[in-house]
Each structure stands twice: as structure tokens, then as C-alpha cells.
Simulated assay, not measured.
Amino acid sequence: MLIFVGLGLYDLDDISIKGLRAIEQADTIFLESYTSILMGANPDLMRELYKKPIIILKRQDVEQYPEPILTAAKSGNVVFLTGGDPMVSTTHADLRIRAKEQDIQTKIIHGSSIVSAVCGLSGLQNYRFGKSCSIPYPAKNWFPKTPLDTILSNIQQNLHTTVYLDIQENRFMTVHEGIDLLEKLMEGSSDTIPLYVGIARAGSDNPIVAAGSSTQLKHIDFGPPLHILVIPGTLHEIEEEYLKIFAGYEP
């Protein structure tokens, strides 16, 4: 059996009791380390708590070479740990499909997700979100405009946009870096983004949430990762009031 277990948002206390029971009964435990990371924990702390070995997986291990995961799941109980909720990432859905094609039984134990945490922390209503997007760090001769296109399309439809910021092995994109990259993409055009919401360390005891213009947010110290951006559409009066109270928004 292959059991997908969500670890939640920030530290080892976020996992569900169901998830802990699955780990206790697991023969093999894998930890996916590329879509999200628990900044309040690390693999060594997990091994100490769970008292079991944990195999760390990179993107290629899941997307290109999943055979060790599937082989282990054919003969024993395999737990596949992910930050947040397991099925927010399409790469995990693909792994579940592959398991099904090989007659491997699967199960999902959900965890708290940034998808819902963004709504709770910002007060932006969940049914008003459009398509989300990700901002990657630019590479040589590669600086995709797709994130900006998604944001502007949502704004035109009066929808909010969740903007995921790049996570790499040795660096984590900040709110400030995300805003800077969007502004570079808008250079030479009449496009504007009037309001940003920056969120840092969702799920921790002291998350930071701040709303304002790009200039205003550049003066906010969001502190350590993980960070995420939200670009709102036109605010409902309750959303505006919530941002004023909990995110320092000054229209």
C-alpha cells in the first residue's frame, strides 16, 4: 500500500493523528523535499520522533524514477510524506495514478495546506480565487512571463491570485524578490498591480501578514522563509476590513 501523508504547514506538531498512526505502521517512509518544506522541522528531527529511517526524495526521484517507491509499496506499507496536503501538487497525483496502474492500493491522509491558510490569514474569500501561479528564479535566457499573465487575467475577472514563490535546495524566494520580479516583467507596459499581500511562515506561532503597495511591502521585514504572495482582485468590504485589522492595510 502507498499512503500519502500530509505533514501540514510548519513543524512536526502539524501532522494528524491518522498520519502518525500510518507512520507507526509503515515499513518504508519516503519524504518528498521539493514542493514544500517544513521550516520548523528537519529530517533528523523526524527520524528522532518517528524512530524510523526516512528516505529523502528529490523531484526527479518522484517524477522520473518512482520505481523504488512503487516496488516497496507492492510488498509493504509505504508512507509518502509531503509538506502541506499531499494532493495539492500534480506530481503526487501522477504518482498515485502510476500506483493504481500497477494495482497498488493507495490512501490519502490530508494535512493543513497553504491553499486554505492563505484565506484564513488574509481574510480573502476562498471562492474568489482564480488560477494560481508560481514565480521561478530566472535562469540564463529564461524569464517566463506566464505568472504575470495569470495575475493580470485574474485581476480582469476580479479574482484573487495565489502566487507561489520558488523553493530551491539552497534558497527560498522572498516576498520582496517576488514583487521585484513581477515589476521587471511589467517594465515598459501600462500594466500595474495595485495591491499585494505578503505572508511569511504560515502555520507558525507568529506568521507575518502584510498588505499594501509594492513600495509599502518593500519596507516590511518578513523574516525567514517560507514566503508566499497573494494578488487580490477588488476587495469585498469584509475582506478590506480584515486586511486593515490583521495585515496593516491602509487604502
Rank of each mutant, 00 (worst) to 15 (best):
M1R: 11
L2G: 06
L2C: 04
L7T: 06
L7K: 10
L9S: 07
L9V: 14
L9T: 10
Y10V: 09
D13S: 15
D14W: 05
S16W: 07
K18W: 00
K18C: 00
K18D: 06
G19E: 02
R21T: 12
R21Y: 06
I23S: 07
E24T: 14
T35H: 02
S36M: 03
G40Q: 06
G40M: 10
N42K: 08
R47Q: 08
E48Y: 11
Y50F: 15
P53K: 07
I55P: 03
I56T: 15
L57K: 11
R59V: 01
V62G: 04
V62W: 04
Q64V: 10
Y65T: 14
E67K: 13
L70D: 10
T71K: 14
A72R: 08
A73L: 09
A73S: 13
K74T: 15
S75Y: 03
G76R: 11
N77G: 06
N77T: 15
F80C: 07
T82L: 01
G83D: 02
D85F: 03
P86R: 04
V88F: 02
V88N: 01
V88G: 02
S89G: 13
S89W: 02
T90W: 00
H92T: 05
L95I: 11
R96D: 10
A99W: 05
E101W: 00
Q102Y: 00
D103F: 00
D103T: 00
I109L: 13
H110R: 14
S112V: 15
I114D: 01
S116F: 15
V118H: 07
G120Y: 08
G120V: 14
L121M: 13
L121C: 10
Q125D: 13
Y127E: 12
F129Y: 13
S132P: 03
I135Y: 02
Y137Q: 01
Y137W: 01
P138C: 08
P138V: 05
A139D: 12
P144N: 04
T146S: 01
P147N: 04
S153R: 06
S153C: 07
I155L: 15
I155E: 08
Q157N: 12
H160Q: 09
T162L: 12
Y164W: 11
N170K: 14
R171V: 12
R171G: 04
F172R: 14
M173L: 04
H176T: 03
G178C: 03
G178M: 03
E183M: 11
K184W: 11
L185Y: 01
M186F: 07
G188Q: 09
G188P: 05
S189K: 13
D191H: 15
D191P: 00
D191W: 13
T192P: 00
P194S: 12
P194N: 09
L195N: 05
V197T: 08
I199Y: 01
A200S: 15
R201V: 05
I208E: 02
V209R: 05
A210E: 05
A210Y: 04
L217H: 05
I220Q: 10
F222Y: 03
P225M: 02
L226C: 06
H227M: 12
H227C: 12
L229A: 03
P232K: 05
L235E: 06
H236W: 01
H236L: 05
E237Y: 13
I238C: 05
E239G: 07
K244E: 14
G248D: 12
Y249E: 08
E250T: 14
P251F: 00
P251K: 14
